[in-house]
């Protein structure tokens, strides 16, 4: 190593270090570049397609669109959905299969959206709720159809 090289090493090294320090120094004084999201204070902007959990929309008459066909149950890779059906007597006296309970295991769900694609009647959709933390795992088992709800007219 010649003397010239020796000093060249020092100079190059110092210069490269100074470049890095200039960069961090820049950010130190430019607080406008800060990107921290103050989450609980400022609610996050979620995309409309964001998949938070499966919900079953009900209309104002407490009616849903689920026929209890179990297509979603079959489509789910994790066994997240369990559908319990019952037999209802229709006005014209026939027995008809209808939804009793739509049990949804949020703790098993990976939000893969396969059930929503599988649903033939658009009965379920993904909501944007993402704050799912609870103290007990059993609280994550949800029944999606509201008590007393019935199938919407005209949905087969």
């Amino acid at each position: 190593m010649t003397l010239k090289q020796y000093f060249r090493n020092i100079w190059d090294g110092m210069r490269s270090l100074a470049a890095g320090m200039r960069r961090t120094g820049y950010y130190f004084f430019h607080h406008k570049e800060i990107i921290t999201q103050e989450y609980p204070d400022v609610p996050p902007r979620l995309a409309e397609r964001f998949r938070g959990e499966v919900v079953m929309p009900h209309n104002e008459n407490n009616e849903h669109r689920c026929t209890g066909c179990t297509a979603c149950e079959l489509a789910c890779p994790n066994g997240t959905i369990k559908i319990i059906t019952k037999y209802e007597i229709t006005p014209d006296g026939k027995k008809k299969k209808a939804l009793d309970k739509f049990i949804y295991h949020l703790e098993l769900c990976t939000m893969c959206n396969l059930c929503i694609i599988a649903c033939p009647t658009d009965a379920i959709k993904m909501s944007q709720a993402f704050e799912h933390s609870v103290f007990d795992r059993s609280q994550l088992i949800k029944i999606l159809n509201k008590p007393g709800s019935r199938l919407m007219e005209g949905v087969e």
Partner: peptide
Amino acid sequence: KVSAWMQVRL
């Protein structure tokens, strides 16, 4: 604080 500001956070 120094580290935070250099790391573009609060």
